[in-house]
Structure formats: C-alpha cells, structure tokens
C-alpha cells in the first residue's frame, strides 16, 4: 500500500480530481488514508466486517462530498471525521435500546507505567475492542478524537454525566486488564513454557 505524503499542491490536485470523479485520483486518496482509516473504523466497529463496511461507506461519502472540502483544514482530519461519523451512525442504529448505565464512582486502578509502556499496540487494541460498546465509543471519542463530554453527549444522545461515568468505567476496565496482562507476562517470564 502506497502511503507517501504528497505536498499541498499534489493534494489539491488529488482533491480536485476526486471532485470531478477521476477514479485515479480517488484511488490515490484512498491509498493515502485507507490504512489509518481502517484502523479508526476497527476501533469503533464490533468486528472487522463492520469496520470494512464503514470504511467503504465512509470513502463513498468522502468522494461524494469532497467538492465541499475547502483546504482550510487537514484533509486527513476531515476524512477521519467522516469515518468516525459513519461508525457512530452505525453504532446508533445498533444500540438504540441500550439501557443507560450510570456508575458514578470508581476506584482508580493501580496501573504501573511499566505495565502500560510494555503493552503492545495489538494488546491495547484488543482490550479496547473488548470494552462494552458504549464505553468503547465514549473512550474512543474522548481519548482518540479529543472530544469533550458535551460534544460526546450530543453525538451519542446521552447525558454529560453518563459520558463521564462511561469514560471512567472504560479507563478502569482497561487499566485493570492492562495490569492483569502485565502480571500474566511477568508470570510467563518466570515460568516459561
């Protein structure tokens, strides 16, 4: 997969080509962002099938709406927002009837820096994937997209308090599991198979 960074002029030409329906330009744009965006979609989706659907749907929206992109912001950010929105939309459709949980107080988990640093990317991805759907959405939106609780509450149709508690709960679960993973690793090191 080609992932070279084009200069601004190239990028403008690619965007222009995409806007006029040039499939070569669309393929270039796709190749530039497909891997990153697939990663984004995987983080939000329940499985890789759904992530693939979201990726395709997201890129169709990108190509159809790229005429509205004015180059006054990051193209990657703009594409990413579309992917996140597609994922969120899918989540909303699937989880309309989820009951609202409100766990207001959590004990901070004693996670060591060493445990966190030694956790691999794949481990962290799988741990995040295992979070309950809404925790996962709130955690991703807050940590990865940098949204605040007010924005998350609007996007997800939940209260700010719920967003805060979901985030705290997600962090708590992740810390516990990362620490557990680290403990497991240490155990395995002492007693290798």
């Amino acid at each position: 997969m080609i992932n070279t960074e084009p200069d601004l002029e190239d990028l403008k030409n690619i965007v222009k080509g995409c806007a006029s329906g040039d499939s070569n330009a669309q393929e270039k744009l796709y190749n530039m962002f497909a891997s990153k965006m697939f990663g984004v979609c995987l983080r939000y989706a329940k499985d890789s099938m759904e992530a693939e659907d979201n990726l395709q749907e997201g890129f169709i929206k990108v190509f159809t709406n790229i005429k509205n992109f004015r180059h006054d912001g990051s193209l990657e950010g703009w594409v990413r927002r579309i992917m996140v929105n597609v994922s969120l939309e899918k989540y909303r459709k699937q989880h309309l009837t989820y009951p609202v949980e409100d766990i207001s107080v959590y004990d901070g988990q004693a996670l060591t820096e060493e445990a966190l640093d030694k956790s691999s990317l794949e481990d962290l991805f799988h741990l995040i994937q295992q979070l309950p759907p809404r925790y996962k959405m709130v955690f991703n939106l807050y940590v990865m997209e940098g949204l605040n609780h007010r924005e998350i509450s609007k996007k997800m149709g939940i209260s700010e308090g719920t967003s805060k508690s979901n985030l705290a709960r997600a962090r708590d679960i992740l810390k516990r599991k990362v620490q557990g993973l680290h403990r497991e690793l240490k155990t395995n090191t002492k007693y290798p198979v």
């Binding site: 499939s23 393929e27 796709y30 891997s35 965006m37 697939f38 991805f125 962090r171």
Partner: peptide, 25 residues
C-alpha cells in the same frame, strides 16, 4: 494513561481488505 494509549493507537494502521477500493469504485 490517555496520552500513552493515544500515542500507541495512532500507529495502528492495519491493511484494509484488498477488494475494498474496487467495491467503493
């Protein structure tokens, strides 16, 4: 905790399915 997670996850760039673009096209 958030910062470490974010930095690690930013490097998460799995390859999309090979036929994805042809489907999009």
């Amino acid at each position: 905790f958030d910062k470490v997670i974010r930095e690690k996850m930013e490097g998460f760039t799995p390859s999309p399915p090979a036929n994805a673009f042809s489907n999009i096209k």
